Amino acid sequence: MKQNMYDDPAFFEKYSEMPRSAGGLQAAGEWPVLRAMLPDLRGKRVLDLGCGYGWHCQYASEQGAESVLGIDLSEKMLSYAREHHSGPAIRYCKLAIEDSTFAGGEFDVVLSSLALHYVEDFGLVCCKVHEALSAGGSFVLSVEHPVFTSRAAQDWHYGTGGERLHWPVDDYQQEGLRNARFLGSDVVKYHRTVATYMNALIGAGFRIAQVAEPQPTEEAMAASAEMRDEARRPIFLLLAAVKD
């Protein structure tokens, strides 16, 4: 299933009001960890799968990438990216991740931020990325953590006074489609175990170089009780893999 919720005006407006949408990479709690997992981008050919607003494309260009291609299915996302995060080294293309096909060795770095849990066949994407990368190339990605996606409700278990008691995990081993609610709309996500994510990369020929489950920074947790709750369970899974 290829979803394009972001071209719905009401959904796009709600998304644009999220802190990470308005504040960019610095407002994304996992960004410092993801940034550290990226290789040196100077002179590299970079592909961003599910580029959204183009924040990562701009970052890659600022780091000296030779070329940056961002693909996304949403025309609204791409229009914003072209208007706000353009440059001589950056180009954008309207294309579903599932439909992407590139020449062998066309890129040196492929990255994807919080997009691949919307894709049904992660293994196929891994194979396509492996083919598209040059020898020694890197695939760095973030997804919603399987502890977060196991239940479609994606919410805390609350006490009688509305306090957050714990984060329930159920049906963890039952992989597949989850009909979740996001910004007031029904959104299809795909739950996979941590093992499935890692084994799909290995099966495609990658060597896994790093795994991270980042929590909010100490500064963020000190400033917000809600951020302290975010440290009670992992919300993101980050993986860095290399094509040897």
Rank of each mutant, 00 (worst) to 15 (best):
residue 1 M to T: 14
residue 1 M to N: 11
residue 2 K to P: 12
residue 2 K to H: 12
residue 6 Y to W: 15
residue 13 E to R: 09
residue 17 E to T: 05
residue 18 M to E: 14
residue 23 G to C: 07
residue 24 G to Y: 06
residue 26 Q to R: 15
residue 28 A to W: 10
residue 28 A to S: 09
residue 31 W to I: 08
residue 31 W to H: 10
residue 31 W to C: 09
residue 33 V to G: 02
residue 35 R to T: 00
residue 35 R to C: 14
residue 40 D to L: 08
residue 43 G to P: 10
residue 45 R to K: 14
residue 48 D to E: 13
residue 48 D to W: 03
residue 48 D to I: 02
residue 53 Y to W: 13
residue 53 Y to P: 12
residue 54 G to F: 06
residue 55 W to K: 01
residue 60 A to Q: 00
residue 61 S to A: 15
residue 61 S to C: 11
residue 65 A to E: 07
residue 75 E to F: 01
residue 75 E to S: 14
residue 76 K to G: 11
residue 84 H to D: 03
residue 88 P to E: 15
residue 92 Y to A: 04
residue 96 A to Y: 06
residue 97 I to G: 01
residue 103 A to D: 12
residue 105 G to N: 03
residue 111 L to S: 04
residue 113 S to A: 15
residue 113 S to H: 09
residue 113 S to C: 14
residue 115 A to K: 05
residue 117 H to D: 04
residue 117 H to P: 03
residue 120 E to N: 02
residue 124 L to D: 14
residue 125 V to E: 05
residue 126 C to G: 06
residue 127 C to V: 10
residue 132 A to K: 04
residue 139 F to M: 05
residue 139 F to H: 07
residue 145 H to E: 07
residue 146 P to K: 08
residue 147 V to N: 10
residue 148 F to S: 04
residue 149 T to M: 13
residue 150 S to D: 13
residue 151 R to P: 01
residue 153 A to F: 03
residue 155 D to V: 14
residue 159 G to L: 11
residue 160 T to A: 14
residue 164 R to N: 10
residue 166 H to V: 02
residue 167 W to M: 08
residue 170 D to E: 15
residue 173 Q to A: 15
residue 175 E to Y: 13
residue 175 E to W: 07
residue 177 L to A: 13
residue 178 R to Q: 11
residue 181 R to W: 02
residue 181 R to L: 13
residue 182 F to L: 13
residue 182 F to I: 01
residue 184 G to T: 05
residue 185 S to L: 00
residue 186 D to T: 06
residue 187 V to A: 01
residue 187 V to K: 03
residue 187 V to W: 04
residue 187 V to N: 01
residue 190 Y to E: 04
residue 190 Y to G: 07
residue 190 Y to L: 07
residue 191 H to V: 11
residue 196 T to E: 10
residue 197 Y to V: 01
residue 200 A to L: 12
residue 203 G to H: 09
residue 204 A to T: 10
residue 204 A to K: 03
residue 206 F to M: 11
residue 210 Q to E: 15
residue 213 E to L: 00
residue 213 E to W: 06
residue 216 P to Q: 03
residue 216 P to M: 05
residue 217 T to R: 08
residue 218 E to L: 14
residue 220 A to D: 10
residue 221 M to A: 02
residue 222 A to H: 06
residue 225 A to W: 04
residue 226 E to P: 00
residue 227 M to P: 00
residue 228 R to T: 08
residue 229 D to E: 15
residue 233 R to A: 12
residue 238 L to H: 03
residue 240 A to C: 12
residue 242 V to H: 09
residue 243 K to C: 07
